[in-house]
């Protein structure tokens, strides 16, 4: 028996009731809808119209109107406004979101762990970038353990130059972890092939805000590659964003022990 024969053995016949009902539905003339159904249909259309208007009128409602664009691993991309866009929108609407509760947080410098230390903390072999653009220096390597917000262990490596930040995140999700949603707003998303797997390329993602010298809040843009490989999910991001032609070879050259 060839290797793949066992896979044919799970085919099922659709139930006779389903087969018969579908064929009947397709080929038999449909009876005219009674008046009550027409009235209900008009009512439904009116409700949809009202809802659409409410989406245009209220930003808080609009944020819930999102379409799932893609999923890669545990990450779902939606076209809802990014958190940075929502924040900026609330500022423009002069309706800032409630101030977060003030809690004293001890400031901690970002650690620069050695590869061995990071691997020991994470409990898995950590990946390294081997094809860095000139000028970038390793600044941070830290491990985030799973918590209420993030059901994964992450090795986060940050490289910086005078005008560029590049971040590699290697994520290992806990078994049975729920998916997470990343709103990307209007940032274009493109499927790409890398390292023998399918990845996603997100360009000009409005990822965060910063305050300019004139105290105006501005959006910060990043480009991001995300893919799954060998049980991990990887994310390579640059800010300001490097083009795909630069980032793809970097992702391809990542070294996994």
């Amino acid at each position: 028996m060839s290797d793949d024969q066992f896979l044919y053995g799970f085919q099922q016949q659709p139930s006779p009731a389903f087969s018969k009902a579908l064929l009947h539905r397709l080929t038999e003339p449909q009876p005219a809808r009674p008046v009550v159904w027409r009235r209900l249909a008009w009512g439904f259309l009116a409700a949809v119209l009202l809802f659409s208007i409410s989406l245009l009128a209220f930003p808080t409602v609009r944020t819930y109107a999102q379409t799932i664009l893609y999923q890669i691993g545990h990450l779902i991309l939606s076209d809802a406004p990014t958190h940075a866009e929502q924040f900026e929108e609330s500022l423009q609407a002069a309706a800032p979101s409630p101030a977060p509760s003030q809690q004293a947080v001890e400031w901690q410098a970002n650690p620069l762990l050695s590869l061995d230390e990071a691997q020991a903390q994470a409990g898995f072999p950590a990946a390294e970038l081997t094809n860095l653009p000139p000028g970038l220096t390793l600044m941070v390597r830290r491990v985030n353990l799973p918590d209420d917000q993030n059901p994964y262990t992450a090795v986060i490596t940050v490289y910086q130059s005078a005008d560029q930040t590049l971040t590699l995140r290697q994520l290992m999700y806990a078994p049975g972890a729920e998916t997470q949603t990343l709103p990307v707003g209007s940032a274009p998303v493109q499927e790409v092939q890398l390292r023998s797997s399918q990845g996603l390329w997100i360009e000009n993602l409005r990822l965060s805000t910063y305050v300019e010298p004139d105290h105006q809040v501005a959006l910060q843009y990043a480009n991001l590659l995300r893919w799954s490989e060998g049980g991990f999910e990887f994310e390579l991001s640059t800010n300001p964003g490097l083009p795909l032609e630069t980032m793809l070879p970097m992702a391809e050259a990542i070294q996994r022990p």
């Binding site: 659709p14 087969s19 397709l26």
Partner: peptide, 26 residues
């Protein structure tokens, strides 16, 4: 019908969803 039904069954692993999507396809 069985081929399309089983395409969805293998794709999503759920008989009810496979029936729904088979019906939509036809």
């Amino acid at each position: 019908l069985p081929r399309i039904y089983n395409f969805f069954l293998y794709r999503f692993g759920d008989t009810a969803l496979a029936e729904d999507l088979t019906a939509v396809t036809f």
